[in-house]
Design a protein around this nucleic acid. Structure first.
Length: 216
DNA sequence: ATCCCGAGGG
DNA sequence: CCCTCTGGAT
């Protein structure tokens, strides 16, 4: 079974109506803060990242201040969000590059961003779309799962799903659709126990209609 | 036991 | 492709 173009457009219309205006759950006040928050969000809930960054940014809200804090100090601050040694190492290295190469600012360029340690394709796309209004679809765990379940974009890798979504969604909606899919994944189309009973998309959903009315 | 707005290394 | 890194929540 496959999802028609018309069905995909209908899904997007419902998602837009449902999640209109929903944006990131991460708290930030500057580009630098968003960059760090997104790096910290790997394998960690946004809610927990917000707890950590509230404390961290109160004192250390710029690359030079993070460098002042140092590896051990940063590890202590971010310990509770998991993967803390690698994240601390990457953030320190990234802050060093930001200071030396970009005057302490966050570069608005995909190649420049992905050269920063700890910044991969997903984080770069979040920063580009959210900070610099570049059309991009960041595929995280929620977008990947929801797009595959719905049949909006099938793919075995995040890149394949990203490319499928770019075909299925008008460019001007890329950044917004990223947030619709995330919120749908967080609130309804959950990884472990999807709430199909609360979903407005079941009539169109590939997984729901393939698995005899029960999403995997 | 599995998942959370992944990335880097082998 | 695979594996590792990691604490907290369910």
């Amino acid at each position: 079974m496959r999802i028609t173009k018309a069905a995909k457009q209908e899904m997007l219309a419902i998602l837009e109506e449902w999640y209109r205006g929903m944006e990131t759950a991460l708290h930030y006040t500057t580009p630098f803060e968003l960059l760090i928050a997104v790096i910290l969000s790997a394998q960690c809930t946004d809610e927990r990242v917000n707890i950590i960054t509230a404390r961290l940014f109160a004192q250390y809200n710029s690359p030079d201040k993070i460098l002042e804090l140092g590896q051990a100090g940063l590890e202590e601050q971010i310990r509770d969000c998991g993967l803390f040694r690698g994240k601390a190492r990457n953030i320190i290295a990234t802050c060093d590059i930001l200071c030396r190469k970009y005057g302490g600012e966050v570069p608005a360029d995909f190649e420049a961003l992905t050269e920063l340690p700890g910044v991969g394709r997903k984080t770069a796309n979040v920063v580009l779309s959210q900070l610099f209004h570049v059309p991009a679809i960041a595929v995280d765990t929620h977008v990947f799962r929801v797009a595959n379940r719905l049949g909006l974009a099938k793919g075995e890798t995040p890149l394949a799903v990203e490319q499928g979504l770019m075909k299925a969604i008008p460019r001007e909606q890329w950044s917004a659709a990223h947030h619709w899919l995330i919120w749908h994944g967080r609130k309804v189309c959950k990884a472990r126990k999807p709430e199909c009973g609360n979903c407005r998309l079941t009539a169109l959903c590939l997984a729901f209609n393939t698995n005899k009315k029960t999403a995997p």
